Amino acid sequence: MMTHAEAVHIAEEQLAREAGPYDPPMAIDSSSIEEREGMLIVPFNSIEYLETGDPMKMLLDCFPTIVDLSTGEARMGTLADLSLFGD
């Protein structure tokens, strides 16, 4: 099983691959990372929002990256994953 630090690094790489040319600069929201059912749930948001907390800079409709701690496989979350995203 991989460490949380290794999984976060994989999530950062996944986020970099998924970012489009018109997306704002984004980063992992390290204060909101959770482990559930053998998966590390790694939220992200715009760097400006993470630095300021200004809700006008918050990204909307972005599901977190999910990293399987046993395999290292990373993917972007979907509606099918809602049960993993919190209470």
Rank of each mutant, 00 (worst) to 15 (best):
P25Q: 09
P25E: 14
M26H: 03
M26R: 13
M26F: 01
M26Q: 14
M26A: 12
A27R: 09
A27W: 00
A27D: 13
A27L: 01
I28P: 03
I28R: 09
I28S: 06
I28K: 12
I28Y: 09
D29A: 13
D29C: 04
D29N: 15
S30F: 13
S30G: 06
S30V: 11
S31A: 15
S31Y: 14
S31F: 13
S31L: 13
S31W: 15
S32Y: 10
S32R: 15
S32Q: 14
S32N: 13
I33D: 05
I33Y: 09
I33K: 08
E34L: 07
E34N: 12
E34G: 05
E34H: 12
E34C: 08
E34Q: 14
E34V: 04
E35F: 00
E35R: 02
E35Y: 00
R36I: 04
R36E: 11
E37I: 00
G38R: 06
G38N: 02
G38F: 06
G38T: 04
M39V: 12
M39N: 10
M39E: 13
M39D: 05
L40F: 02
L40W: 02
L40V: 03
I41C: 07
I41F: 04
V42W: 00
V42G: 05
V42S: 04
V42R: 01
V42E: 08
V42M: 02
P43Y: 00
P43T: 07
F44M: 07
F44I: 05
N45G: 07
S46P: 07
S46T: 15
I47C: 03
I47Y: 04
I47W: 06
E48L: 09
E48G: 01
Y49A: 00
Y49I: 00
L50Y: 06
L50R: 11
L50C: 03
L50H: 07
L50V: 10
L50T: 08
E51W: 05
T52N: 07
T52W: 10
G53I: 08
G53R: 12
G53M: 11
G53T: 06
D54F: 01
D54Q: 03
D54C: 01
D54E: 05
P55L: 12
P55N: 12
P55K: 13
P55I: 10
P55C: 07
P55F: 06
P55T: 11
M56W: 14
M56L: 10
K57H: 11
K57V: 02
K57M: 11
K57D: 12
M58P: 03
M58R: 14
M58D: 06
M58Y: 01
M58F: 00
M58Q: 14
M58H: 12
L59Q: 08
L59K: 11
L59E: 07
L59C: 10
L59V: 09
L60W: 13
D61K: 12
D61W: 09
C62M: 11
C62R: 15
C62S: 11
C62G: 06
C62A: 09
F63M: 12
F63D: 15
F63I: 04
F63L: 13
F63E: 14
P64Q: 03
T65M: 15
T65S: 11
T65N: 14
T65G: 12
I66Q: 04
I66N: 01
I66A: 02
I66K: 04
I66P: 00
I66G: 00
I66V: 10
I66S: 01
